[in-house]
Deep mutational scan, measured.
Amino acid sequence: KNAAKIVNEALNQGITLFVSDNKLKYKTNRDSIPSELLEEWKQHKQELIDFLTQLES
């Protein structure tokens, strides 16, 4: 999976991924984040940080 797909899947579940101080963060109104999503974010962390940083610049 690529970073764009992961970010879109998160958005579809009401979760916004973003970068703050070079760290991957998220915002959501959900009570909890599915563990498989958290695991996927960890596996692709640097790719996600790079992707989101490019989007914001």
Score class of each variant (00 low, 15 high):
1 K>P: 10
1 K>Y: 13
1 K>L: 10
1 K>M: 09
1 K>G: 12
1 K>E: 09
1 K>C: 08
1 K>T: 11
1 K>D: 08
2 N>F: 08
2 N>M: 10
2 N>D: 15
2 N>L: 13
2 N>C: 11
2 N>S: 15
2 N>K: 11
3 A>P: 13
3 A>W: 05
3 A>C: 07
3 A>G: 04
4 A>F: 08
4 A>M: 14
4 A>N: 07
5 K>G: 10
5 K>Y: 15
5 K>C: 09
5 K>H: 13
5 K>M: 15
5 K>I: 15
6 I>W: 04
6 I>F: 04
6 I>Q: 02
6 I>D: 01
6 I>A: 02
7 V>E: 01
7 V>P: 00
7 V>N: 04
7 V>M: 05
7 V>F: 12
8 N>W: 14
8 N>D: 13
8 N>M: 15
8 N>L: 15
9 E>A: 07
9 E>G: 04
9 E>L: 05
9 E>N: 08
9 E>P: 00
9 E>D: 12
9 E>V: 05
9 E>F: 06
10 A>C: 04
10 A>G: 03
10 A>L: 03
10 A>R: 00
10 A>F: 03
10 A>V: 01
11 L>Y: 12
11 L>G: 05
11 L>N: 07
12 N>W: 08
12 N>K: 14
12 N>I: 14
12 N>Q: 14
13 Q>S: 07
13 Q>Y: 12
13 Q>E: 08
13 Q>P: 00
14 G>H: 05
14 G>V: 01
14 G>T: 02
15 I>D: 00
15 I>S: 01
15 I>H: 03
15 I>N: 01
15 I>A: 03
15 I>G: 01
16 T>R: 09
16 T>G: 03
16 T>V: 15
16 T>W: 10
16 T>P: 01
16 T>C: 09
16 T>I: 14
16 T>F: 10
17 L>H: 01
17 L>D: 00
17 L>N: 01
17 L>K: 00
18 F>C: 05
18 F>G: 02
18 F>W: 06
19 V>L: 07
19 V>M: 05
19 V>R: 02
19 V>N: 02
19 V>H: 03
20 S>M: 11
20 S>K: 14
20 S>E: 15
20 S>G: 07
20 S>I: 15
21 D>I: 03
21 D>V: 04
21 D>Q: 07
22 N>S: 08
22 N>Y: 06
23 K>F: 06
23 K>V: 12
23 K>G: 07
23 K>I: 12
25 K>Q: 14
25 K>L: 13
25 K>A: 10
25 K>P: 00
25 K>E: 12
26 Y>W: 15
26 Y>R: 01
26 Y>N: 02
26 Y>G: 02
27 K>I: 10
27 K>T: 11
27 K>S: 11
27 K>G: 04
27 K>L: 08
27 K>D: 07
28 T>K: 03
28 T>M: 04
28 T>N: 04
28 T>H: 07
28 T>E: 02
28 T>C: 05
28 T>W: 03
29 N>G: 11
29 N>Y: 12
29 N>H: 11
29 N>T: 11
30 R>V: 06
30 R>C: 06
30 R>K: 10
30 R>M: 11
30 R>G: 09
31 D>W: 04
31 D>T: 12
31 D>V: 12
31 D>L: 11
31 D>A: 09
31 D>F: 06
31 D>K: 03
31 D>P: 15
31 D>N: 10
32 S>D: 10
32 S>P: 12
32 S>M: 08
32 S>R: 09
33 I>L: 07
33 I>P: 05
33 I>F: 06
33 I>W: 03
33 I>H: 02
33 I>S: 02
34 P>F: 03
34 P>D: 06
34 P>K: 05
34 P>L: 04
34 P>W: 02
34 P>Q: 04
34 P>T: 05
35 S>K: 11
35 S>C: 10
35 S>Q: 15
35 S>M: 14
36 E>D: 09
36 E>H: 13
36 E>G: 11
36 E>N: 11
36 E>T: 10
37 L>W: 07
37 L>V: 06
37 L>T: 05
38 L>D: 02
38 L>C: 08
38 L>A: 06
38 L>M: 12
38 L>N: 04
38 L>W: 08
38 L>Q: 06
39 E>K: 09
39 E>W: 08
40 E>W: 05
40 E>L: 13
40 E>R: 10
40 E>F: 11
40 E>C: 10
40 E>P: 02
41 W>S: 01
41 W>H: 03
41 W>I: 10
42 K>C: 10
42 K>V: 13
42 K>S: 15
43 Q>G: 06
43 Q>F: 11
43 Q>E: 15
44 H>T: 03
44 H>V: 04
45 K>L: 15
45 K>S: 13
45 K>I: 15
46 Q>T: 08
46 Q>K: 11
47 E>T: 06
47 E>N: 05
47 E>K: 06
47 E>W: 03
47 E>C: 06
47 E>Q: 09
47 E>H: 06
47 E>R: 05
48 L>N: 00
48 L>V: 05
48 L>S: 00
48 L>E: 00
48 L>Q: 00
49 I>V: 06
49 I>S: 02
49 I>Q: 03
50 D>A: 12
50 D>K: 10
50 D>E: 15
50 D>G: 06
50 D>R: 10
51 F>S: 01
51 F>N: 02
51 F>V: 02
51 F>D: 00
51 F>Q: 02
51 F>T: 02
52 L>D: 00
52 L>N: 00
52 L>E: 00
52 L>M: 03
52 L>A: 01
52 L>C: 02
53 T>H: 07
53 T>R: 09
53 T>K: 13
53 T>I: 14
53 T>W: 06
53 T>Q: 11
54 Q>G: 12
54 Q>D: 08
54 Q>M: 13
54 Q>K: 15
54 Q>T: 12
54 Q>P: 07
54 Q>W: 10
55 L>F: 12
55 L>Y: 11
55 L>K: 14
55 L>I: 10
56 E>M: 12
56 E>T: 12
56 E>S: 14
56 E>A: 13
56 E>D: 14
57 S>Q: 13
57 S>M: 13
57 S>E: 13
57 S>G: 14
